[in-house]
Design a protein around this nucleic acid. Structure first.
Length: 512
RNA sequence: CGGGGCGUGGCGCAGUCUGGUAGCGCACUUGAAUGGGGUUCAAGGGGUCGGAGGUUCAAAUCCUCUCGCCCCGACCA
């Protein structure tokens, strides 16, 4: 009987015990972010922000490689702009923060009160189609001005009722791309291209397997003609959209008067697209790879790849170990992985075993312990975050340096394969209504266990069926998969709800 | 906006029914021991108990008002 029973896992509760609470605890333990005094807003701490910066760098490079240029537009949008596109108003009006005054004055009891009302209220951007559209209308006169390919990295505000750090916050960071084209085909191609970019970011960098698809009219971006998305499965088997790309047709061009004179001398409306990904990706990362000891970061976007943990008992050992550690750090930093120099942390804090655990919880890919014994053997003691925390191996120092990038590749691949296997395991084709309902109904209704997954089932295309299922089960159509998903390309069948003929299966799931 | 709950050192909480002037765990600081692991012992710093008013010799505790937050629901590309 140990007087103090050590928890077997660093995070309590475990995923199995209480997934939403596990998520909160992991964020706290990993030092990524914390809640702020402002309701629904988060403080992103250095470890979390560095992670975001790496995501930004990866995406930004892909955007630029596809010809997109960055620009910046105002935080404030005149109220009248938002009113220009009818569906857009519907979709966003309810969740907007509105600026109505431009000054503060001393009020009674020394309190500051808003003064100087604005003639036209300003909306804090929930998205920027309208204000960017206004610029586009001025920039575009001729078909020779097209295409225009613009992206902005920005913060946006959506006054959500219920918030969760990274997944749904009142303010979040994202990028929004906006393009204008002379032809429908070209705009459609761009919509598809950017979806590919998001899929590549998710799979190659974040090691999150995704399914590419199209949203149903009910789930579409307000004002869009077509919304494409990439959907991932979290470890509670719920779906999370990790990127979205919209074909806006000429809707926003009409609303903002984005017109050009074509080669045939006709005046035409431009075809526009918009596409975005946000700090929500970090939530997806946590819920895809995290375990009961904290987050697990894919090496390609980890803020640091390796932490060196000197094992010293006294000044003499320190004098022996530290030069060895510093020289190893120098060697490692000269290498690079995924186009980025290897980032090395050296943690010399004398806080006992808590030191190693902190890095496990923070999800750093590799922990390297170095003590007198390793130096005598010219080796290092290495622990991988994708393996059990007790599984640590002694490796010759030279070999570790030489094989570092292979090890990181191995971790990156393991995470992706593991997540892909999980997604496959919890994806099923369901053709019977009862099975479908069983699949999405927890055994214990009081305290629902993790259940369900991706159900590939037929849907007739009727919004009434979609709504019925949403209301009865809380399950929605995440997407109509694009070609190439085997479960989708399985011929026609009968709608899971009404049994009417349906050409294809769609993905039903509970969603974030 | 409806239903429920909670505001006590940085965090998590006890104390409130039965008023007597604040306590526990973690974290933090210092010292010592330990040393391939969330170690141990000792000493220590930090709170006008969300705010205002009232009752009382005396209020974290009782009464009134008020502010804020959380959870469930509605809401959510």
């Amino acid at each position: 009987m140990s007087k103090q029973q050590q928890p077997k896992k660093a995070i309590s509760p475990t995923r199995e015990e209480d997934y939403p609470e596990w998520y909160q605890q992991v964020i706290k333990a990993s030092d990524l972010a914390e809640k702020s005094p402002v309701r629904g807003c988060m403080v992103i701490k250095p470890w979390g922000y560095s992670l975001w910066e790496n995501i930004v760098d990866a995406l930004d490079a892909m955007f630029k490689a596809s010809g997109v240029k960055n620009a910046y537009f105002p935080l404030f949008i005149p109220l009248s702009f938002l009113e220009k596109e009818a569906e857009h108003v519907e979709g966003f009006a309810k969740e907007c923060a509105v600026v109505t005054h431009h000054r503060l004055e001393k009020g009674p009891e020394g309190r500051l009160v808003p003064a100087g009302p604005l003639t036209e209220p300003l909306v804090v951007r929930p998205t920027s189609e309208t204000i960017i559209g206004d610029s586009f209308s001025k920039w575009i006169n001729s078909y020779r001005d097209l295409p225009i390919l613009i992206n902005q990295w920005a913060n946006v505000v959506r006054w959500e009722m219920r918030t969760r750090v990274f997944l749904r916050t009142s303010e979040f960071l994202w990028q929004e791309g906006h393009t204008a084209h002379a032809t429908e085909e070209e705009a459609l191609a761009r919509t598809r291209l950017m979806l590919e970019v998001y899929a590549e970011l998710a799979e190659k960098h974040l090691a999150i397997p995704v399914i590419k698809g199209r949203k149903t009219p009910a789930e579409r971006f307000p004002g869009a003609v077509d919304t494409l998305c990439v959907e991932a499965m979290m470890q509670d088997r719920r779906a999370l959209q990790t990127g979205t790309s919209h074909f806006l047709g000429q809707n926003f061009a009409r609303a903002s008067s984005i017109r050009f004179q074509d080669a045939d001398e006709q005046e035409r409306y431009a075809w526009t697209t918009s596409w975005g990904a946000s700090t929500r990706l970090i939530g997806g990362l946590i819920m895809t790879h995290g375990d009961d000891n904290g987050i697990v970061l894919p090496p390609r976007i980890a803020p640091a790849h390796v932490v060196l943990l000197p094992i010293v008992r006294n000044a003499e050992e320190s004098a022996l170990v530290m030069p060895y550690v510093d020289s190893l750090a120098d060697l490692l930093k000269k290498k690079s992985y995924g186009g980025r120099p290897i980032e090395v942390e050296i943690d010399t804090r004398d806080i006992g075993g808590a030191r190693g655990w902190e890095w496990i919880k923070k999800g750093i890919p590799l922990r390297v312990e170095i003590g007198p014994r390793d130096i005598a053997a010219e080796s290092v003691f290495v622990g991988r975050r994708d393996r059990d925390h007790r599984e640590k191996v002694s490796v010759k120092r030279a070999r570790f340096v030489a094989e570092l990038t292979d090890i990181l590749d191995s971790i990156q691949n393991t995470l992706f394969e593991r997540a892909l296997a999980f997604q496959k395991t919890h994806s099923t084709m369901i053709d019977e209504k009862k099975s479908f309902y069983d699949y999405f109904t927890p055994i214990d209704k009081e305290k629902p266990e993790i259940h369900g997954g991706f159900a590939f089932s037929y849907w007739c295309g009727d919004a009434a069926c979609e709504t019925a299922i949403k209301e009865e089960l809380g399950v929605t159509i995440r997407c109509i998969p694009l070609a190439g998903v085997p479960e989708h390309d399985s011929g026609p069948g009968g709608c899971i709800c009404c049994a009417r003929p349906s050409p294809q299966r769609v993905i039903f799931a509970k969603a974030y």
